[in-house]
Amino acid sequence: MSEHIIRVMVAKPGLDGHDRGARVLARCFRDAGFEVIYTGCHQTPEQIAAAAIQEDVDVVGLSCLSGAHRYLFPAVVEQLRQRGADDIDVVGGGIIPDQDFQFLYDAGLKALFTPGEKLDDIVEWFRQNVKKRD
């Protein structure tokens, strides 16, 4: 009997070293029954994309609190695309001003979560939207 367990990578691109939020999410995904690969702070988009492929995750969750999301989030999407892995979805979270949302969605981000978001709602989004790949 096949048993699909959602695999998520939680990653922090760039120089932002504040990973409390990322760790809380990692724990909350664990409690939701997902397998969570956490790669720590200070990752380049290239490192994140390479690791996501090696780990065969369904989705990469990026956390950025430094304001560099407009550069870093699309860079991860692009790196995955260049490596032929655009079936791996990318979502983001952090301090993201409303006016940047459309820009990031256009760049290929599948969802954005900002402060005040309920953990249960985030988990529910993953359950509804993470698709099983062949």
Partner: peptide, 17 residues
């Protein structure tokens, strides 16, 4: 819950590329 945190990789990320 069947969930897991796989954190060993944190120490090895310099070889990711």
């Amino acid at each position: 819950t069947g969930g897991a945190i796989l954190g060993d990789r944190i120490r090895m990320q310099r070889h990711a590329e």
